[in-house]
Amino acid sequence: MNQDIYVVIEHLRGQAADISYLMLAGARALAQETGGEVVAVLLGHNAQSLANNMAAGKVLYVDHPALAEFTSDAYQKALAGLIAEKEPRAVLFASSSIGADVSSVLSSHLNLPLISSCQSFSADGRPISQICGGKIMVESDLPDTTTLLTMIPGGYKSEEGQSGKSPEIIKVEAPALDDLRVTLAIYRSGSRRCGYFQGADSGFGGTRDPKSGQY
């Protein structure tokens, strides 16, 4: 195991999510304690330019058509091999509809510990998490093995995770991604009322524009 802190960059439809920069800032705080380097992990297809302003020592970039848009199965396969091979000190994921889909599955699949809802790190590198809707904070030990963490906003500023200098980008070969069990069919713009999708037009519900047919 090395002492590097990996950050899985979250992006959707060509935009890096703000949480990615917050995580880079958090990773820098943790790397100062471990003595390692901050390494961004970018999965995508023709998405290399997303890494240009990231405050990381280097970027590991995995390019594959199956990674163009997020699907849990493709991300898990791509990351499982990378994490097992590189053995970083910690891997940070966003506590989001992308990061949460991947981190827990990898944790049980790779038999690696996971600490979730981490908001910040203490001065000596201990993750501080939030549970019970923010009513309780938990300070945990960072286990002595590669540890997965999911991060929530609140501890760092996104500006701290950005840089005017482009990091070194290292291309990493993607694993075989040809027998995926999860595939993206289509994006729709969800329209919610009272917290629930309305109607039943597609068998799913949803408010559909009768002219465009779009949700």
């Binding site: 959707l12 439809r13 069990r181 999860v182 069919a185 729709r188 713009s189 969800g190």
Partner: peptide
């Protein structure tokens, strides 16, 4: 508000 329809085996 973005929604993805995912097909899952």
């Amino acid at each position: 508000g973005l929604v993805a329809e995912m097909e899952i085996k």
